[in-house]
């Protein structure tokens, strides 16, 4: 552990300011709370929002897990883990079950989150109405007046153009019947996991200087139409080529040598756990 820095990199005042914004965010589910995004030793747009939340919340007894697009071992995840560990000395894990604090980029882990855990999501664009209305002062007004026709209009446009809703990720959700929220670019597959979740979900956008939250046991509904229902990605009839799992979010890979399309768990730690279970059975 590097003692040249204060615990968790930030000075106590900074951490307190971020926690104060976080508390407000939890008190108003889905509402984007502005906060003074700090300069970080990594560039804005590389997870600084999530990292600031993590650093402001982490304590000596926390167990940290960091994932990037489902992977515990990608460069981004490893570097964020290194920075946090270097300045706090906390333990890290790859097992979702063991972690108390999970920072994630664009995925909610396959293993259901449990009570007491905190999931921190990194957000590039926190404003769900941005494409519809470029002005921040206008979108603030729209949120204040609960005027969300723009969010539905964007989905309507997709149906007109392509025949179905085509949001690959970041499908907007209505939180607690009040605020429409960008769930960060998690796949549609993960949207239903937010509904009545046991854990606290925090979302941080460093570049856009916003924090928002989905507290435990909050109603989270993906936007849709009466005749075009929200549908998560379907992986029917497909399974992971490594662990054989079904009913999980799968990556599609093309094996060029064999000219075949194969599927593999996107959540690497989940896949590894499944594989280890199988091996144990083999040993016995």
């Amino acid at each position: 552990m590097n003692t040249a820095y204060n615990f968790a990199f930030f000075d106590e005042g900074s951490k307190r300011e971020i926690r104060r914004a976080t508390l407000k965010a939890i008190a108003i589910p889905g509402y984007q709370v502005p906060f003074a995004s700090r300069e970080m030793p990594i560039g804005r747009g590389w997870g600084t929002g999530g990292l600031q939340l993590t650093l402001s919340l982490i304590g000596r007894n926390d167990v940290l897990k960091v994932i990037d697009q489902g992977s515990d071992e990608s460069v981004n995840a490893v570097n964020i883990k290194k920075l946090v560990c270097d300045t706090t000395g906390v333990e890290t894990t790859e097992h979702t079950e063991e972690a108390t604090l999970i920072q994630s980029r664009h995925r909610i882990p396959e293993v259901p989150l449990r009570k007491g855990q905190i999931l921190v999501l990194q957000v590039p664009l926190p404003e769900p109405l941005r494409y519809y209305e470029p002005s921040e002062s206008q979108t603030k007004k729209l949120h204040a007046e609960k005027e969300y026709s723009g969010a539905w209009l964007m989905l309507f446009e997709q149906i007109m153009k392509y025949g179905s809703m085509t949001t690959g990720a970041d499908h907007p959700v209505l939180v607690n019947g009040r605020y429409v929220m960008a769930p960060s670019p998690i796949p549609r597959y993960d949207n239903p996991k937010m509904q009545q979740n046991d854990a606290l979900i925090l979302l941080g956008a460093g570049r856009e200087k916003k924090v928002y939250a989905v507290p435990p046991y909050t109603k989270v509904v993906s936007l849709d139409f009466d005749d075009y229902h929200f549908q998560p990605e379907s992986f029917e009839g497909k399974h992971c080529r490594l662990c054989g799992s079904t009913g999980v979010f799968l990556d599609e890979l093309v094996d060029e040598a064999a000219n075949k399309t194969v599927y593999q768990c996107n959540d690497t730690s989940y896949c590894l756990e499944k594989l280890n279970e199988v091996e144990k059975v083999g040993v016995n």
Binding site: E147, S149, G150, W152, L153, D226, D227, Y228
Partner: peptide, 14 residues
């Protein structure tokens, strides 16, 4: 046109 209809509460694409 749909923008106005959505704003007035319609959620029926057809």
């Amino acid at each position: 046109i749909a923008e106005n209809l959505i704003a007035a509460g319609s959620r029926d694409v057809g």
